[in-house]
Write a protein that binds this DNA or RNA. Structure first.
Lengths: 102, 102
DNA sequence: CAGAATCCATTTTGATACTG
DNA sequence: CAGTATCAAAATGGATTCTG
């Protein structure tokens, strides 16, 4: 057994999905509100720059955790919500929360 | 509900315990080998500096995840192993691994 | 509004040399 | 051997301005 077992293991991928200064909080809001508009999300999280928020959302979208829904018109509306896969994280995050509290 | 719910939640603490470039790999080795000597651990993980490895181990020790055992003599021997609390992470990490692989 | 672009600050990690 | 100390590099995050 050596370190290379690690490069592509699921644990590494999974931790990547939730690492990033604001990702757990994004998940928190999406679990709580179901669907959340970009600007509302942004204003709920003081001190994130929109750049970083966007980067995090893009990554989470690529990883299949969340989905982006765009409503055409002016002004533009963009909403984010958890994918089915993202919702599967629920019990795991709950377990982590419990672990961290114990 | 706002972002302050987050500052001290267990999830944040738990993620902190496993975030750090090498922490998951440290856990991986300790779960696998039970007890591991500092230098062996270091040589198993190319490209970590001893400085960073030490920092990670110290943090994990402070957080109660691992324990340090020192055997007096020359040369000095220091071993690390999971604490009881650390071992509780096992099923959670397994779930994350499975999630990441799916 | 929802970002993209640019530039800067902070944090994290690594390389190397040194010590008890 | 098991670290520290110091410095440099890289990664991450933030502030500001601009655009369709």
């Amino acid at each position: 057994m050596d370190y290379k077992d690690f490069e592509n293991c699921g644990l590494k991928k999974a931790l990547n999905m939730v690492s990033g200064k604001w990702k757990p909080m994004i998940l928190h809001f999406l679990f709580h509100y179901g669907e959340y508009r970009f600007n509302d999300l942004w204003r709920s999280m003081p001190k994130v720059s929109k750049k970083v928020l966007t980067e995090h959302l893009r990554q989470m979208e690529e990883q299949g955790l969340i989905k982006r829904r765009e409503v055409n018109g002016f002004p533009l509306e963009v909403y984010y919500h958890l994918s089915e896969k993202g919702r599967e994280l629920g019990p795991i995050l709950a377990a982590l929360d419990e672990f961290g509290n114990s």
